[in-house]
């Protein structure tokens, strides 16, 4: 047996640990590239954490994170070579890329206003059984919309995070690593241009969760839908494009919908 048989295994542990820690060091060695403040609607506490004391948040989408009406040429720019006879551009599992996300408060507010308008118009009607039942249903829908419905949406995908960050450098967007999966949404014969198939591209951020450091964990604990507690999360993307939770603040509960 060698004099120090432990040396190589120990070297592997230290070397393999150094790689992620160096990545994190580089990532945090400068000011964040982008910062966005989201809420419990967009980053939800992960459920089913049996005996796990750590807190992680998962992305919750207002709209499915997809871009549609893309042509084969659009996808070619992203490195996908799509042929008409293939549903998934020959890459069923997708590939690594980048997604730009933002908060679409306008669409969210439109949903709130629309429900409130219906609610107000019902209030003007005689309070019969049908109206009261409908009002109860609308109250619940309004609460869902105000408290739970996410405003998060994907606005762009790409294979160069720096180019995306330059294009969306307005303080209202984040660039995240993602898994991109293209698929054909229409056959060529279905479109106005008979030669062109149209595609969609679905993007899932990787990793799928964000870790909440323990100094902020109390703010998000037990907020997974059972309680009225709300919070705002500031998420940053560092120099190495790693996302991180910078701050979590408890918010005052949203006002309840009128009874």
């Amino acid at each position: 047996m060698a004099r120090a048989p432990w040396a190589l295994p120990v070297a592997i542990v230290l070397g393999a640990t150094l790689v992620p820690l160096a990545k994190v060091g580089v990532d945090r060695s400068a000011e964040p590239r982008m910062t966005l403040t989201l809420t419990h609607r967009e980053l939800m506490q992960r459920w089913g954490r049996n005996e796990n004391s750590g807190e992680v948040l998962t992305w919750s989408w207002g709209m499915v994170p997809e871009l549609d009406s893309l042509t084969a040429a659009d996808l070619e720019d992203l490195g996908f070579h799509c042929r008409d006879q293939e549903y998934d551009c020959g890459i069923r599992s997708g590939r690594s890329g980048w997604i730009v996300v933002t908060l679409d408060t306008v669409t969210w507010q439109r949903g709130v206003d629309s429900l409130r308008t219906i609610f107000d118009s019902l209030l003007a009607l005689p309070p019969d059984t049908v109206t009261r039942a409908r009002l109860r249903e609308l109250t619940w829908q309004l609460e869902q919309q105000v408290r739970q419905t996410s405003r998060l949406r994907a606005v762009a995908v790409g294979d160069d995070p720096a180019a995306l960050a330059t294009r969306y450098a307005d303080g209202a967007h984040l660039v995240l690593a993602a898994r991109l999966r293209p698929y054909r949404s229409r056959w060529s014969g279905d479109t106005r241009d008979p030669e062109a198939s149209l595609y969609r591209i679905h993007a899932d951020p990787t990793p799928a969760t964000l870790y909440v450091p323990n100094e902020y964990a109390a703010e998000v604990r037990d907020t997974g839908g059972y309680r009225d507690r709300s919070f705002a999360v500031t998420v940053s993307v560092g120099r190495g494009w790693l996302p991180r939770v910078d701050r979590v603040e408890g918010l005052e509960p949203e006002p309840r919908a009128p009874e």
Binding site: A16, T17, V24, P207, T209
Partner: peptide
């Protein structure tokens, strides 16, 4: 160790951990 470091620092999953 490598799995938890990935979670704590939100690192994208990589197959190279299997090499280590």
């Amino acid at each position: 160790e490598l799995g938890a470091l990935g979670t704590i620092f939100n690192l994208p999953p990589t197959p190279h951990a299997f090499l280590a």
